[in-house]
Design a protein around this nucleic acid. Sequence first.
DNA 1: CGACCGATCGTCT
DNA 2: GACGATCGGTCGA
Length: 199
Amino acid sequence: MIKLEQGFYNRADVLKIARELLGKVLITKFDGIVTSGRIVEVEAYAGVKDKASHAYGGRHTNRTSVMYYPGGTAYVYLCYGIHHLFNIVTNTKDIPHAILVRAVEPMEGIPAMLERTGKKKPDYTLTKGPGNVSKALGIGTKHTGGSLLQDEIIIASDGFVPKKEDIVATPRIGVDYAGEDALLPYRFIIKGNKYVSGK
DNA sequence: CGACCGATCGTCT
DNA sequence: GACGATCGGTCGA
């Protein structure tokens, strides 16, 4: 298991990074409890010129300021008052690119995930959808602005790389408000994986 | 199945 | 004061 370093996140091509994140392992360690899952679905948000991005047009508020941090920072925010959505900030300081992790396949610490989510059995709903990922892995808004290069939240590679033909690009979910940008193929999934959200 | 709807609150206007 | 980068339950066919 090799932790991804600054150089992975700092690059300029957010679409390339998003694609490369598929198959990587997202690991959290809170209070000695380790939970992890393989990333199977992500969405890229390409900064100031992407109408679907919180940083569109250079919007810079308290909440979104984290997006302007250097690559390798966690951006977590509350959606619909209930769900914590976990994003990975990419590119260099002041360029607000981000990648939303929408689904993982559970690996380590499944009992802890069941406890956090209140589920009885580890079925495919455990870490399907961005709200569930954060819930199962114990990620909340207090982690926004935190570094992915430390110990609490990291992303690592165990050598697994999805086959090229298994990676599919589609439009993003729930961004109809973004006009024509809602059609951009910025969502990447591992084809056939049962943890991928949607139908 | 699909459509609809309620939950619930920080953030922005 | 309105509204989400959502989820899961319910209802009807």
